[in-house]
Design a protein around this nucleic acid. Structure first.
Length: 478
RNA sequence: GGCUCUAUCGUAUAGUGGUUAGUACGUUGGCCUCUCACGCCGAUAACAGGGGUUCGAAUCCCCUUAGAGUCACCA
């Protein structure tokens, strides 16, 4: 068996959406598992849809996520060029070969004629009108410079069957196949044609792509057959949906890879999650590193039915990756989000320690830390905690004592603060939870905070802590 | 509409003729605890419907229903 060669062939239309990224991921994982090659090819035959910078986004995203291609436009290889617009001349040559063998023909039909074709169930099917043109007429019109396209000559009877690795045998009546255009009037090949020619020329023997190509694959197979080329192995994949009836797409404003990064998701979590959308390993593993994914990936685990993208589960996976980050990496990665919090001179290390285990995405940082810079009215009701037997009256009573204790505290760190407050609770003969609860509320004015009273006091610093306690006392006495 | 594909808890899935239908997220009860979070223990909830085949069907077949894809000089 020759070396497995698979490929990812995106169009540079502006972004790499989640579905495309997953296709690339699966193709890469499968190629690597089989000790084969993974190739990147840019399909830019539609000049109208080309978007500047889109190619760079593709390169960057694949690199960033670890989906390294063995051959491609910017890394080279023996089958280049890897950009379709640079292979333009190849296609016409092969199309003409097909014309010679009768598998394709020139078509001079005008747009108007095409538009006048009968509409059958909402679709206009080309009627093979130009198939019957005489050799002389074709030569004459070609010489005259008439605009033309080259169409594939589909069989009218019989049916075509092929095997798909995930969907099994697919059979379609040949009469369902339209004489699709191979070469457009601008001389460029259509995707359908270029795709087949390139795959063959590049030695691609395994094609992994979205299910949208499942029903047009017989057309490609007819092309392979006409040339006498060996058909590749096909692996079609189910779509990723936003909900039961809508596909996930940038057009609907759904998240692309880059959007997810901006929303505070880690690339490892994104890759891990999308790997699980439509595929599952033999065991019950869910959190898998890229290396594990490579080891465990197998096409037999690919699902047939569409799967809905679940941000909640992604967030959960993301939190797992966040928790295992070394503190330094976390601090480094969190930097941009921390900057939006105006933390002034608070100790970033302590702040990170506080939030690392409490966020699922980095975007939550701002909300979680707002209390560090915003402090104002405290609702008396917040002092009430039945379990700890705390309330506003108790707060009014012990807050001054807390203040006195802290005022003389020498080493301002979490442990000392905690010990001091616990000590006070013993002296006052009340629950330590009551003291800590009241202190925390007084310092933050919030029912829920990341971290307890002592941790927060440590970050706030002595001066700010005492200032806030004063504030709280004043409010209670007002 | 024609053609193709799909159908297990809300979501992602395990399951390939015999299981108390498993797991994870979510939701939820509890424990732990200076609130929250983490962690731990429990609960919740599914074979779309109807016919077959079979001693036996989530698993095989058919129909219905629902959904997706496709029918371009787009990829």
């Amino acid at each position: 068996m020759s070396e497995l060669r698979t490929r990812f062939a995106p169009s540079p239309t502006g972004y790499l959406h989640i579905g495309g990224l997953r296709t690339a991921l699966y193709s890469y994982l499968y190629a690597k598992k089989m000790n084969g090659k993974f190739i990147l090819r840019i399909e830019d035959t539609d000049q109208g849809r080309y978007v500047d910078g889109a190619v760079e986004i593709i390169y960057r995203t694949l690199r960033e996520t670890g989906i390294m291609y063995d051959e491609g436009p910017d890394v080279g290889g023996d089958y280049g060029p890897y950009i379709q617009s640079e292979r333009k001349n190849e296609y016409l040559f092969y199309a003409e070969k097909l014309v010679e063998s009768g598998h394709a023909y020139y078509c001079f039909c005008s747009e108007e004629r095409l538009a006048s074709l009968p509409d059958i169930n909402g679709a206009r099917r080309y009627d093979k009108h130009c198939l019957n043109l005489s050799k002389e007429e074709i030569a004459e019109r070609l010489a005259r410079g008439d605009k033309y396209v080259i169409r594939q000559n589909m069989p009218v009877t019989g049916n075509s069957t092929y095997h798909d690795v995930v969907y099994g045998d697919i059979t379609i009546e040949n009469s369902e196949l339209e004489d699709q255009i191979l070469i457009k009037s601008d001389g460029m090949p259509t995707y359908n044609f270029a795709n087949v020619i390139d795959d063959h020329l590049m030695g691609i023997n395994c094609v992994m792509r979205g299910i949208e190509y499942l029903s047009s694959t017989p057309k490609y197979n007819l092309l392979y057959d006409a040339f006498g080329w060996e058909r590749p192995v096909y692996i079609h994949m189910p779509p990723i949906m936003k909900d039961a009836q809508h596909k996930l797409s940038k057009r609907n404003g759904d998240a692309s890879y880059e959007d997810l990064i901006k929303k505070g998701f880690l690339k490892d979590a994104i890759i891990n999650y999308i790997a699980l959308l439509g595929w599952s390993p033999k065991d019950d593993s869910e959190k898998m590193s890229f290396a594990e994914l490579q080891r465990k990936f197998d096409v037999s685990g690919i699902n047939k039915s569409p799967s809905i993208f679940d941000p909640m589960k992604l967030a959960w996976l993301n939190s797992l990756y966040i928790k295992e980050m070394p503190p330094e990496s976390f601090a480094e990665y969190a930097k941009p989000w921390l900057e939006t919090c105006y933390l002034k001179d608070f100790d970033k290390r302590l702040v990170c320690k506080l939030i690392q285990s409490r966020i699922e995405t980095f975007a939550e940082i701002e909300d979680k830390l707002r209390f560090l810079v915003e402090f104002g009215d405290i609702d008396d009701g917040l002092y009430v905690n039945q379990k700890q037997k705390a309330d506003a009256a108790l707060a009014k009573n012990i807050l001054p004592k807390i203040k006195d204790k802290l005022y003389v505290l020498k080493n301002w760190d979490n442990q000392n603060l905690f010990d001091t407050l616990v000590e006070l609770s013993a002296e006052l003969d009340c629950k330590k939870g009551a003291v800590l609860w009241i202190a925390r509320v007084a310092l933050t004015g919030l029912a829920v905070t990341p971290g307890g009273a002592s941790e927060i006091a440590e970050i706030l610093g002595k001066e700010e802590t005492l200032r806030r306690i004063d504030c709280a006392i004043m409010q209670l006495n007002a």
